[in-house]
């Protein structure tokens, strides 16, 4: 591929990303970081966990993304009585043309491009674990048969941080499979005005479809190919290692308050997110600022506080911010 074609691809990535973001902003008021984070998760080939109080637009955001990107969308409302088969699908006896009975796999709602796992922490761990294979291998195994899921696959889960009664906190293995954990903020005064104007009038917002599945796949491929200089890669590694209390790179605060730090998936998430961010800024190389921007959403759900940290109500975002600030940049 010649340089000019690559330049065109990069420019196309940049333009389409911003077009999608602009389209989403017509539906979702505020929360620009969450919008950009969701798109980054999708284009990096990862999954996202949206956390916010009820009514801030988590579900609406995911629905809008599916609409803007023209992806096959599926919504799963997680409840305590939800079973794994309700997600993955199950084998059923069907009558064939000859009148005989055959066992046939009926795909569940997981077979889609964009899956909204709404209130994921309300399902039992057994049901939650049904997503493990889907999120990691993009496949489902039912009755000894593995079924591949059609790419692109992106699970966007939501959870409410306030209501804890009747919920099942996600296990660490499940959390680790999310590329980013994104927070949805409560809107401010101006945002509330815009929300009310848009939702209480007779005018309905029409979302513009700016991407399709092929575009998304091409953009994913391009993002994966963004090169990372060794110094920037090492910078991301040091940031990830800085969250591990047992490593020699952790600051004193991490050693005191953190039980478990980031796994290697955390460093992978940083680099993948940084690559997408570099392209969205028109660059074909990852800079240290991309790493810094991607580190917080990539690490905040991978850091588990110990008892002292919980008792002290340590803010994990501030903790990770301290880690990032403590790692020398590659340009210094």
């Amino acid at each position: 591929m010649n340089i000019a074609a690559l330049e065109a691809q990069v420019q196309d990535f940049h333009d389409r990303f911003h077009a999608a973001r602009t389209a989403l902003a017509t539906m979702i008021v505020g929360n620009a970081a969450a919008i950009e984070g969701v798109l980054t998760c999708l284009l990096a080939g990862g999954h996202g966990l949206l956390e916010g109080v009820p009514g801030v637009g988590k579900t609406k955001l995911v629905q809008s993304v599916a609409e803007v990107l023209r992806l096959r969308f599926s919504r799963i409302q997680f409840t305590p009585d939800l079973m794994p088969g309700d997600i993955t699908g199950t084998t059923m006896l069907r009558e064939d043309a000859a009148g005989g009975r055959v066992a046939r796999f009926e795909p569940g709602p997981i077979f889609a491009h964009l899956i909204l796992a709404d209130e994921i922490n309300r399902a039992t761990p057994r049901t939650q674990s049904a997503l493990l294979e889907v999120m990691q291998e993009a496949s489902v195994t039912v009755g000894g048969v593995t079924h591949r899921l059609d790419p692109p696959l992106c699970v966007l889960a939501t959870q409410n941080p306030i209501e804890l009664e009747g919920t099942y906190p996600l296990p660490e293995a499940q959390l680790d499979r999310f590329l980013f954990k994104l927070g949805m903020d409560v809107p401010g005064l101006d945002e509330m005005r815009a929300i009310l104007d848009r939702t209480t009038s007779s005018d309905t917002v029409q979302l513009q479809e700016v991407l399709d599945r092929d575009h998304v796949l091409a953009m994913r491929t391009l993002a994966r190919g963004v090169p990372v200089a060794p110094s920037v890669r090492d910078y991301a590694i040091l940031v990830a290692l800085g969250t591990q209390p047992q490593s020699g790179y952790a600051p004193e605060r991490v050693k005191r308050f953190v039980r478990f730090g980031s796994s290697p998936r955390g460093a992978q998430a940083i680099i993948l997110g940084a690559k997408v961010r570099a392209l969205t800024h028109g660059r074909v190389h990852v800079a240290a600022e991309d790493v810094r921007a991607a580190a917080l959403p990539a690490l905040r759900h991978r850091v588990l506080l110990n008892f002292e940290g919980e008792a002290e109500r340590i803010d994990i975002d501030a903790l990770i911010g301290g880690v990032i600030a403590g790692v020398p940049e590659p340009s210094r």
């Binding site: 990372v228 200089a229 110094s231 660059r283 190389h285 800079a287 600022e289 340009s331």
Partner: peptide, 8 residues
Amino acid sequence: LRDALSSA
């Protein structure tokens, strides 16, 4: 230059 020349 945001690591442009060092990456290059």
